[in-house]
């Protein structure tokens, strides 16, 4: 069960994308997806800070925070969440920033083609699974060879399940800081 967060300041785009995800008639079918949409990047970041997400798909040009900045922040919050940008505006500087800073997996130009976009999302999710699986196996190997301790392994498992849990920050008064 993967959670996909979509951010675009245009609600009609969000509705269209939600329909596209749910419409199994358009191949390839994406099963087992939870789609969460935000027209405000700030609210989207609040959500990502508190929930595990597998993919964040963001528009590039938005008021408040642009797509590259948003995904850069997402990367800090949940390094394992896949990131995609879509834009109607091909501004080379923006794309470069999105790739270098936000480490995006794909750039999709608007208007998109539904089958292509769905295929891209499926690929991105599969790629992400593969990366995580690779790391898990590598960690297991390291543990077997005694390079890392069981405690570290457990920490990484926890972090995968609930992003941010291993990096809890304490306030001066001993309280837990959930967000920054």
């Amino acid at each position: 069960m993967a959670t996909v967060v979509i951010v675009d300041d245009e609600p009609n785009v969000l509705n269209a994308l939600r329909r596209m995800f749910l419409n199994g008639a358009i191949p390839p079918a994406l099963s087992d997806l939870t789609v969460v949409t935000f027209s405000s990047p700030v609210q989207a970041l609040e959500y990502v800070a508190g929930h595990r997400v597998e993919l964040v798909l963001s528009d590039y040009r938005m008021p408040e925070v642009d797509g590259a900045a948003l995904l850069t922040r997402v990367r800090e919050l949940q390094p394992d969440a896949a990131r995609m940008i879509m834009s109607a505006y091909t501004d080379l500087d923006g794309i470069i920033r999105a790739i270098n800073q936000a480490g995006i997996f794909r750039f999709v130009s608007k208007p998109w083609s539904d089958p292509d976009l769905k295929a891209a999302i499926r690929d991105v999710l599969a790629h992400r699974d593969l990366l995580i699986e690779n790391r898990r196996l590598a960690d297991e190997l390291r543990w077997q060879r005694g390079v890392i301790t069981e405690q570290q392994l457990e920490l990484q498992r926890l972090e995968r399940e609930s992003p941010g849990i291993t990096r809890v920050r304490w306030a001066e008064d001993g309280g837990v800081l959930l967000q920054d």
């Binding site: 009609n12 785009v13 269209a16 994308l17 596209m20 608007k110 208007p111 998109w112 083609s113």
Partner: peptide, 8 residues
């Protein structure tokens, strides 16, 4: 932008 959601 509008074209994108209309098409989709």
């Amino acid at each position: 932008n509008p074209l994108a959601f209309v098409l989709s």
